[in-house]
Each structure stands twice: as structure tokens, then as C-alpha cells.
């Protein structure tokens, strides 16, 4: 899976927003924290949920299961708004 090209990330305060261009059928935005931003960065290349979890584990210390939950939640949110290919 991969984040669609027409979705742009923009930093705002301590977090970021994911915004679609005018071509996307959805015209809202998704707001997230730095962890969400890291997940989005990984999704700029074709990847899998398992690979994202592994990359996030290398980058962040987190309690058992927390990274898996964050990644699953982010992917679910992105699928809901049609931001992912594959």
C-alpha cells in the first residue's frame, strides 16, 4: 500500500494535517501527531503494515502493542478517506 500522490502533509503546531488536492473526491483533512507523521512518511513508498510497524519500532520506544495499535489506527483512518492505494 502507498499514500496517494494527491495527499499533501503540512506541519501545524506540534502535529500535522494531511490534505487532499482539489482532484480528490474527499475534501476534508486528517489531523495527527508526530507519530502519525512518521507513519505517513513511511507510506510515501509502497509498503506493508508489518514493515511500517518494524520501522516505527526502530525509531520509537513504546509499550508493548502501542505501535501496532497506532499503525493499525492510522491505516484504518487513511483507508476510510481513500488516501491509500493498494
Amino acid at each position: 500500500m502507498k499514500l496517494k500522490e494527491e495527499y499533501i502533509t503540512h506541519e501545524i503546531g506540534d502535529g500535522l494535517v494531511l490534505v487532499p488536492t482539489g482532484l480528490a473526491s474527499w475534501s476534508g483533512f486528517v489531523r495527527g501527531n508526530k507519530t502519525f507523521g512518521a507513519i505517513l512518511s513511511l507510506l510515501r513508498e509502497d509498503t506493508t503494515e508489518e514493515a511500517i510497524v518494524a520501522a516505527m519500532r526502530e525509531r520509537f520506544d513504546a509499550p508493548e502493542g502501542a505501535i501496532e495499535r497506532d499503525v493499525a489506527r492510522a491505516i484504518s483512518e487513511l483507508r476510510k478517506v481513500g488516501a491509500l492505494d493498494g
Binding site: 494527491e6 499533501i8 490534505v19 488536492t21 482539489g22 482532484l23 483533512f29
Partner: peptide, 28 residues
């Protein structure tokens, strides 16, 4: 923090991703 996301809903969103980035900077 409140105004930026709210304004996003009212700003024209360009079709070109590069122009959208410029627009987000303008909203900032």
C-alpha cells in the same frame, strides 16, 4: 491551532500538489 484547520475547509484547494503546498503556506 483552532483557526488553521477550520480555515482549510474554506480555502480553494488547488489540483496541483505543488500549488496546494504554496496555499497551505499562505494559510499559515
Amino acid at each position: 491551532d483552532d483557526a488553521f484547520p477550520s480555515l482549510l475547509g474554506h480555502v480553494y484547494r488547488p489540483i496541483d500538489p505543488t500549488v496546494l503546498l504554496q496555499t497551505l503556506t499562505l494559510v499559515d
